[in-house]
Structures are given as C-alpha cells and as structure tokens.
C-alpha cells in the first residue's frame, strides 16, 4: 500500500460454487453418480478466487467482498468457509425451478449471476476457471458478455491497485507461456489455481462467519422466472470410460518390484549403474 494513497471504495463479487467429489469406488444411477458416493466441498478454483479477493480487500481501505452461490441450503456450509476467510457477506440463490434441473446450463448460471451483478454493481467479479465436477469452464466469460463487462480467462497473476481502473493480469497459456494483458474495469476474471496460497480460516474467522449474512434469493427476488432454467442441451448418458491398461505390472515385495524395475531401466540403456 502506498502511504497517503487515495482509495476509492471498491466492491468485489466472487462467484463460488459447491462441488461434488466422487469416491474412488462409485456407482452410476441414471444420469448421475449415486448420492452415497458423493462428498461436497468448496470448488478448488473458487478457493483461490476468494483468497485473491480477500487479499485485495486487505490491501485497500474501503473494499467490500461479497460472495454469490447458486446452490441448495446444503451449500451454506461451503459459503461459510469463504465468510470465515474474510468475505464480508454472501448471497445464495436457489429456487424450486433450479432444483428440478438435472444440471444447470452455462446460460442459466450466467443469467442468474447477471441479475445479482445488476443488484450489487461490483467493480470486479472473480470466479474460478472451472468447477471440479462439471469442468465446463465457461460461466465467467459468458457472464462477462451478458453484463457487458470486460474479462480475462485463466488468470494466474493479478496486479490491481484497489480503486484502480485497469487490472494487469497474466493469463496462463499452454506450454509454460504466460500472456500479459491489461484489462479495463469493470471486469470478470477467472482465477487459475496456484495464483496465491489460499489461507486456512482462523478460529476467530470461523466464529465471526457465524454472524455474517447469507442472503437467500429466489429467481423471483432477482426479477427472473422459470424460463431462465431452460436449456437446449440435455444430458442423455453418463458412463465410466473403460480402462485399457496393458502395462506390465511388476509384482512381489517392494524390494523385488524395485529389482525388476532396475533391470528394465538398465536394459533401456539410458540409465547406468
């Protein structure tokens, strides 16, 4: 922080989602994995987005950080994780019409989040690059287009003076190359893992989170109706890909296994000894 620096108030909205994690052994029931094999957690990418938002808040003087989640009551557990790490308040959107869908399409999520952006008027929206479970990787950019914000996808370095009007970012491209880009605010940035080191919530933070607001919103509250849940995409089948391993597996005790592998490595001629 620059001594004597002038900060304008800033509002950061972080879109976070609860994700389902599947146990190693599982069964598919219809179009989904059977409920008993699922555990729910905060989306890994969103954890980095929360950390980035909270760091901006700590660097500024008047920065409000609000999280928004589309999810059932169960997801309040993961929403509280963000509140315990420093998010000021949260919004949770849910509705019978959303509950009825097998999965929510990109356009549905973008429309719902766009309505929240309209209410909150943030300067910056952060969200994870993708979710662990659906891994669609499209909500952030679709949202930006919907609300007329500029955007950058797959951001792994963010340089922004709180209250500033341009974010300087690195976008992580393929092959170990980063693109350096200046993005005008207001903007949506999708945050890549590794951009920071997400903190653990302190006991004090966890205690404070209990009294922070999680505002429930229905589609009606946001001025939307059921038509927003309609999607031209239908999930028709979910299956586990067949594994086709033809690896030669060395067997025995660890010493015996290592011995066989050592012989193989010597045979290749690239390892000596």
């Amino acid at each position: 922080m620059v001594a004597g620096g002038q900060f304008r108030p800033m509002k950061i909205l972080i879109a976070v989602t609860e994700v389902a994690e599947v146990e190693d052994d599982f069964e598919i029931e219809g179009l989904g994995v059977a409920e008993q094999y699922l555990d729910y957690d905060l989306n890994e990418w969103d954890d980095y987005a929360i950390e980035e938002g909270v760091q901006l808040q700590e660097a500024g003087e008047d920065v409000e950080v609000v999280s928004v989640t589309i999810g059932p009551e169960r997801s309040e557990e993961t929403i509280r994780m963000g509140l315990a790490k420093g998010v000021d308040r949260a919004i949770r959107v849910w509705d019978d019409a959303l509950e009825e869908r097998e999965e929510l399409g990109v356009e549905t999520k973008a429309d719902v989040l766009a309505a929240v952006v309209e209410d909150e008027a943030p300067d910056l929206v952060l969200t994870g690059v993708q979710s662990n479970d659906d891994a669609f990787g499209a909500t952030g950019v679709a949202l930006a287009e919907e609300i007329g914000f500029e955007w950058a996808a797959v951001v792994n370095t963010l340089d922004l003076d709180p209250g500033g009007s341009v974010a300087s970012v690195h976008r992580e491209l393929e092959g170990g190359v980063e693109e350096l880009t200046d993005v005008e605010l207001p903007a949506v940035l999708t945050i890549q893992t590794g951009i920071n080191e997400p903190r653990y919530a302190s006991l004090r933070g966890i205690r404070q989170a209990q009294s922070k607001e999680i505002a429930p919103k229905s589609l009606g509250d946001l001025g939307l109706d059921e038509s927003v849940t309609e999607s031209p995409i239908t999930l028709t089948q979910l299956y586990e890909p067949e594994t086709e391993s033809d690896a030669t597996v060395f067997e025995g005790s660890p010493d015996e296994e290592a011995d066989q592998l050592a012989d193989l490595l010597r045979e290749t001629g690239v390892v000596e000894g």
């Binding site: 399409g105 990109v106 356009e107 973008a110 990787g137 499209a138 909500t139 952030g140 950019v141 679709a142 930006a144 287009e145 919907e146 955007w151 950058a152 996808a153 797959v154 976008r171 999607s231 031209p232 995409i233």
Partner: peptide, 15 residues
C-alpha cells in the same frame, strides 16, 4: 475458453 462462451452467449447458441 476466453472467447467461445462469449460468442455462444451473444449469439444465444448452446455451448
């Protein structure tokens, strides 16, 4: 992934 979702949204096409 930095432009396809925006194109789909603008053209109202499923993605």
């Amino acid at each position: 992934l930095d432009y396809a979702p925006a194109v789909a949204n603008r053209l109202s096409l499923p993605l």
